[in-house]
């Protein structure tokens, strides 16, 4: 039996909208419209979709904050809506844009509160804290008030706080948003390690496709409250025909590069040129081909934007939404 299990789960909100001075109109919004999936223990799954697609509504139902309108939902055998506090002991949650740490107090004080609030046995708390401090490099930061931490440091601190009670499931909402490259890499490395050595099940929502690429073997795409795709990331690229970008810095301004097979010229700006190639293809032969034929200074590969992939995948749907919002 899967560890996280959703069976035609629905969440319908009734929105009251003013249409006149007094008149109100009731409208049903199907935020989650019959979603079914299962996640096995120890899986690391990306849960992606455009804003307003139903991602956070799903997470809120999985944590027991929201009661589903219909369908069946189980996490670790627990019905989240019924036993919210019991489930809280089994799950950890990290919001990229909202810290749960105590702003004015040293980092370690927040951990001490978690220790007591989750009633973590002393030995286990020590062990978990030591491990997190070690792996997330928090030693120097424990005595620093949270308000003085950088965004990346705070995110690491937040992740540690969510793991002290040994949760079986970790929900991460945009864990790398706003972080610099080094911090991003560090967070990802930690999560990968957590998943492999600890077997923690991870559900990750993100706008950064690199997060998914580097962490998740499986990705689920949700749009309009429905599950549109469930499978490997590579498959998503194939379906969405998404492209990656090769940014090439040449020695000088040159005519557009059109002689490299498999690459399509997009635009240029002085000596810099942008080339698109299928996301499923490897960048290596392409780089070699460009380097062989042109005076190359520097280059980088840009991952396709997740919104762009999904937009491409479902063509008109996003436009429709935009119109319906107007």
């Amino acid at each position: 039996m899967p560890f996280i299990e959703l069976d035609t789960v629905e969440k319908i909100f009734t929105v009251r909208r003013k249409t006149g001075l007094i008149r109100r109109e009731k409208r049903e919004v199907r935020a989650v419209d019959g979603i079914s999936f299962g996640v096995d223990r120890g899986e690391m799954v990306g849960y992606i979709g455009p804003n307003g697609a139903g991602k956070s509504t799903t997470i809120k139902m999985l944590t027991g904050i929201l009661t589903p309108t219909g369908g069946r939902l189980r996490v670790a055998g627990i019905d989240p809506a019924r036993e919210r506090t019991r489930l809280a002991q089994r799950i950890g949650v990290v919001f990229g844009q909202r810290t749960t740490l105590w702003w004015d107090l040293p980092l370690k004080d927040s951990y001490r509160l978690m220790h007591r609030m989750y009633r973590i046995p002393d030995a286990r708390y020590r062990e978990n804290l030591d491990r997190c401090v070690d792996l997330l490099d928090l030693e120097e930061l424990l005595d620093v008030p949270v308000r003085q931490l950088s965004l990346g440091q705070r995110m690491r601190g937040d992740i540690a706080a969510a793991l002290l009670h040994d949760p079986d499931v970790l929900y991460l909402d945009e864990p790398t948003i706003g972080l610099d490259v080094v911090s991003k890499a560090r967070v990802r490395e930690f999560l990968r390690d957590l998943n492999t050595t600890h077997g923690t099940t991870v559900l990750l929502t993100t706008h950064d496709l690199t997060d998914i690429e580097q962490l998740c073997s499986r990705v689920m795409v949700i749009d309009h409250g429905r599950l549109m795709y469930d499978g490997e990331l590579a498959g998503l690229h194939a379906v969405g025909e998404s492209e990656r970008l090769l940014v090439v810095d040449l020695e000088r301004e040159l005519p557009p590069i059109t002689d490299v097979p498999g690459a399509r010229f997009v635009r240029s700006e002085g000596p810099r040129q942008w080339l698109a190639f299928p996301a499923t293809a490897s960048a290596a032969p392409l780089v070699a081909a460009v380097a062989a034929r042109h005076p190359l200074l520097d280059l980088s590969v840009r991952e396709p934007d997740i919104e762009a992939v999904i937009a491409k995948m479902y063509g008109g749907t996003r436009e429709e939404r935009r119109e319906s919002l107007m």
């Binding site: 809120k60 944590t63 027991g64 904050i65 919210r84 506090t85 019991r86 809280a88 002991q89 799950i91 949650v93 919001f95 909202r98 749960t100 609030m117 989750y118 009633r119």
Partner: peptide, 12 residues
């Protein structure tokens, strides 16, 4: 601002 959700996720 939705920060009540954080409280609801705690076992207290």
């Amino acid at each position: 601002d939705g920060s009540l959700d954080t409280f609801l996720m705690r076992p207290a």
